[in-house]
Computed example of a mutant assay.
Amino acid sequence: MEYTTAPGDLEMGPTERTVVLVEKKSSTEWIWKVFGVLLIAALCVGGILLFAWYWNGREMTTQLGRTETLIKNDSAEETDPHYTLKRISSKAKAAIHLEGSYEDESLEKQLEWKDGQGQAFAQGGFQLVNNQIVIPRTGLYFVYSQASFRVSCSDGNEEGAGRHFTPLSHRIWRFSDSVGRKVSLMSAVRSACQTTAQEGSYRDGQGWYNAIYLGAVFQLYRGDKLWTETNQLSELETDAGKTFFGVFAL
């Protein structure tokens, strides 16, 4: 506060003057206000930067963890015989992959396909009905199958090893209402024990190993049914990853 003397009234004489109180703001008050605003702004900016740093660090940690997990999974899956097919089919809208087994001898020339064990799965409307794959909708599909064999080429006579020829066959059948009958979609025949290069393994009783793989793209229609036919079922290798059957949409 500051006291200011006002000019006196001439009629009242020079001795009497009016004193007026005038409020005068301190010169330091506005400085403190400006400093307070700047401090609040600095705290806000600092908080935003701290939050951004924390969030970026968290995302980097999560990303590194995911990358390490993917690297570990890729390293493990590279040894999986299903790796390529599984990776492709995982991006498909509809896919089915089945594992083969031969436990029921009443299924003549047919493997028993299972969709609930090992690497087997079904998605996008595919169904396994009566040991047949049912196509969910019309479109282009990649159809594939593999049958692995282990054939004993020797009948106990070492000199006759490699001379006993055994034909192996694997076929995929298709039934479509548009055709009205079953047709062969793919097939292959291979002769086991056709060479003597593995006579050492014959003597050890390990047998002759080979696999028949089928795979191609086809235009299939809704309701089409696919199944396989294989001979020498008793010679099949049905361990995980050796005999399989599948379809995926393109």
Rank of each mutant, 00 (worst) to 15 (best):
V189D: 09
V189F: 03
W227R: 09
G205R: 11
K72N: 12
R174M: 09
K86M: 10
E229C: 02
F218G: 06
T228Q: 13
A122W: 00
G156F: 03
A76C: 00
E29M: 11
L250D: 02
Y144A: 05
K91D: 02
K114W: 01
H170F: 11
L49K: 14
G246V: 02
L21K: 11
D80T: 02
V22A: 07
W55C: 00
Q117V: 13
H164E: 00
G118Q: 06
S152C: 03
E199N: 13
I31K: 14
E158L: 15
M1G: 13
Q127T: 15
K25F: 01
C193M: 03
S152H: 08
F35E: 04
L140A: 09
Q117K: 15
N210D: 06
E112V: 09
F248L: 04
L85M: 12
L185H: 04
P136N: 06
W32K: 14
T28Q: 11
A161V: 01
L49W: 06
I96T: 03
G57S: 09
T18K: 15
F248S: 05
V22Q: 13
E108S: 13
Q206D: 10
I135V: 15
I133M: 12
E23W: 01
L168V: 05
E59C: 09
F142W: 06
G241N: 08
A52L: 10
Y213Q: 10
G124W: 03
G116D: 13
L233Q: 08
C153W: 04
R163M: 07
L185G: 05
M12I: 00
M60I: 12
L39F: 10
Y3R: 15
E23P: 05
D204Y: 07
E2L: 12
T4C: 08
T67W: 10
A92P: 08
Q63I: 01
G100K: 10
R137Q: 11
F218E: 02
G125L: 06
F245N: 05
T166G: 02
S89Q: 03
I40K: 12
K182R: 10
R66G: 03
L168S: 07
S26K: 14
W53A: 12
T4F: 11
H97N: 03
Y213H: 12
V247G: 06
V189M: 12
M60L: 14
Q132V: 01
S148Q: 07
R66D: 02
T238K: 10
D104V: 12
G215I: 00
A161L: 08
G139N: 08
R137I: 00
R66T: 02
N157S: 13
P167L: 06
W113Q: 07
E105A: 13
A42I: 10
L220W: 02
T69F: 09
L64W: 06
T230R: 05
